[in-house]
Simulated assay, not measured.
Amino acid sequence: MNQPITLTAAQKAGPALTVIVLGAVLAILVAMPLLHLLPADNAFHVSAYTLTLVGKILCYAIVALALDLVWGYAGLLSLGHGLFFALGGYAMGMYLMRQSAGDGLPAFMSFLAWNELPWYWYGTSSFLWAMCLVVLVPGLLAFVFGFFAFRSRIKGVYFSIMTQALTFAGMLLFFRNETGFGGNNGFTDFRTILGFSISAPATRAVLFLTTVALLAGSLYLGWRLAHSKFGRVLTALRDAENRLMFCGYDPRGYKLFIWTLSAVLCGLAGALYVPQVGIINPSEMAPTQSIEAAVWVALGGRGTLIGPLLGAGIVNGMKSWFTVAFPEYWLFALGALFIVVTLYLPKGVIGLLRRRNEQ
Rank of each mutant, 00 (worst) to 15 (best):
residue 280 I to Q: 07
residue 313 G to I: 04
residue 232 R to E: 04
residue 83 L to R: 04
residue 346 P to S: 07
residue 219 L to N: 00
residue 297 V to F: 02
residue 80 G to I: 04
residue 135 V to C: 15
residue 3 Q to G: 06
residue 19 V to N: 09
residue 267 G to L: 02
residue 270 G to T: 01
residue 131 M to G: 11
residue 58 L to Q: 04
residue 238 R to T: 00
residue 204 R to P: 09
residue 204 R to L: 13
residue 300 G to Y: 01
residue 242 N to F: 14
residue 324 V to T: 15
residue 116 E to Q: 10
residue 163 T to E: 04
residue 331 L to C: 08
residue 300 G to P: 01
residue 66 A to K: 03
residue 13 A to D: 02
residue 227 H to F: 14
residue 248 G to K: 05
residue 170 G to T: 07
residue 268 L to R: 11
residue 84 F to Q: 09
residue 84 F to I: 15
residue 308 P to M: 07
residue 225 L to W: 06
residue 109 M to N: 03
residue 95 Y to H: 11
residue 193 I to G: 01
residue 278 G to T: 06
residue 34 L to A: 15
residue 58 L to C: 05
residue 70 V to A: 12
residue 345 L to T: 08
residue 143 F to R: 06
residue 355 R to W: 15
residue 160 S to D: 03
residue 222 G to L: 02
residue 165 A to L: 10
residue 263 A to I: 03
residue 153 R to Y: 11
residue 355 R to T: 13
residue 179 T to Y: 08
residue 342 T to V: 13
residue 297 V to G: 04
residue 221 L to T: 07
residue 357 N to I: 03
residue 290 S to K: 01
residue 261 L to P: 00
residue 187 F to H: 05
residue 124 T to N: 13
residue 232 R to W: 08
residue 171 M to L: 09
residue 175 F to I: 09
residue 289 Q to H: 11
residue 167 T to D: 05
residue 322 F to L: 13
residue 254 Y to T: 10
residue 260 T to S: 06
residue 247 C to Q: 12
residue 250 D to P: 05
residue 320 S to D: 10
residue 186 G to F: 09
residue 108 F to P: 02
residue 30 V to L: 15
residue 260 T to I: 08
residue 180 G to W: 00
residue 336 A to V: 09
residue 139 G to D: 11
residue 342 T to S: 06
residue 158 Y to M: 02
residue 235 T to C: 05
residue 131 M to W: 13
residue 123 G to W: 11
residue 180 G to K: 02
residue 89 G to F: 00
residue 51 L to K: 03
residue 160 S to E: 07
residue 83 L to W: 10
residue 75 G to C: 02
residue 195 G to Q: 05
residue 275 P to K: 03
residue 183 G to K: 00
residue 64 A to Q: 03
residue 169 A to D: 08
residue 53 L to P: 04
residue 319 K to E: 04
residue 142 A to L: 13
residue 8 T to F: 05
residue 171 M to A: 02
residue 218 S to E: 00
residue 221 L to K: 13
residue 291 I to A: 05
residue 335 G to I: 00
residue 274 V to A: 09
residue 302 R to Y: 10
residue 49 Y to H: 15
residue 99 Q to H: 10
residue 267 G to H: 08
residue 97 M to E: 15
residue 101 A to C: 05
